[in-house]
Amino acid sequence: MRKMLLAAVALAALTLPAMAENYRFAVVPKAMNNPFFDLARDGCVKRAKELGNVECIYKGPVEHEPASQAQIIQDLIAQKVDGLAISVSDVAAATRSIKAAVDAGIPVITFDADAPGSARTAYIGTNNKEFGLALGTKLKELRPEGGKFAMVSGGPAAKNLQERVEGVREALKGSKWEEISGSPTFCNDDIALAVQQMQDLKTGNPDLAAIVPVGGWPMFAREGFRSFASKFKKDIDAGQFSLVVADTLPVQLELLKEGYANALIGQRPFEMGEKSMDALLALKKGEKVEEIIYTGLDTVTPDNVDAMLKK
């Protein structure tokens, strides 16, 4: 009888579906006080819930601090998370951290900002050179007569931002636009500083015809940006001062609708968070993923801002 029972148990075990293994995947942004990454977090959490056997851990430095990001990655390695998705603040520092994770058997992908020479398996996010080209092309389209322009960037060691700056310059090369000395400024993802830098650029160069922030930082400070732009509202309305800004977060769409900018070129951070979970799960299953997964861009002007606000 005992042998028959054991045989029955063994047969039942063979016929039962295998339970899905649970995984803990960490998304590490450049800075947790940057609302852009809140959307990546939301996409990560949503997709993890849909998958059922995945937990999304969202952890990064409060402010843009590459050394802090590197330490957080080391802590996550020590906690033996099952996968890492990193928005790279500093390529050199992240390359070392990524190698440490891979050596520990943890798959790593990058999102938003890449470290292409590292041991990461894939990058999910924007084609940043095309992003910069789109920003510059939109400015040229709005103001073919040209003038002096400046850019505001984030961290000088972030490859994605370097590529955007290069793209803007490439788009405006040979046009009537001239970049001023001291451009770009670097706000290190500090939204208040980004607004102050825009003010300083305009104060120091009264004939400045356009400012192109290659990230949405200044507009994330709603009142500060509105205060700055309102001083030049007549010039913005008359096409004599142009603001073409990266990203399309809700606060930016609202400011654009109010007339405090001319155009936005936006990324898709929510989708980055979703796809990061899919890629890490595939890697844990031993599946291959594409090395480069672009999530696309959106161009928003006063003509289609209402439609974007409804999404």
Rank of each mutant, 00 (worst) to 15 (best):
P156A: 14
F225I: 13
K176T: 06
P144G: 01
E130D: 15
K159L: 14
S230R: 04
F232M: 03
M198G: 11
F149D: 03
L133A: 08
P250I: 10
D190P: 08
A157N: 09
R226T: 15
D237N: 04
V214Y: 00
D200S: 13
A157C: 10
R164S: 11
N160F: 00
K129Q: 13
V195P: 08
Q196K: 06
E166H: 11
A192W: 00
K129C: 10
F186P: 05
E163V: 10
A246L: 00
R226E: 15
P144W: 08
D235E: 13
L193W: 05
A229Y: 01
F228A: 15
L255N: 03
N160T: 06
K159W: 04
Q252F: 00
K202N: 11
E145L: 10
S242V: 12
V212L: 07
L208C: 05
E258K: 02
D237G: 00
F232V: 05
L256W: 00
F220P: 15
Q252I: 04
Q199C: 12
A246K: 02
K159H: 09
R164M: 06
T203F: 15
I180V: 11
K231V: 12
E145W: 12
D200N: 09
Q197H: 05
W217E: 15
L253K: 00
P250G: 03
N160G: 11
G215Y: 00
K176A: 12
R226H: 06
G132T: 06
R143L: 03
D247W: 00
V168E: 04
D190H: 06
K233I: 07
R222G: 14
Q199G: 14
P184E: 04
L142I: 01
V168S: 05
K173I: 10
A157D: 10
V244K: 03
E223T: 11
W177F: 10
L133Y: 04
E258Y: 00
T137I: 01
L139N: 01
W217Y: 08
G239W: 15
A158Q: 08
L172D: 05
F225E: 12
K138H: 01
L172S: 04
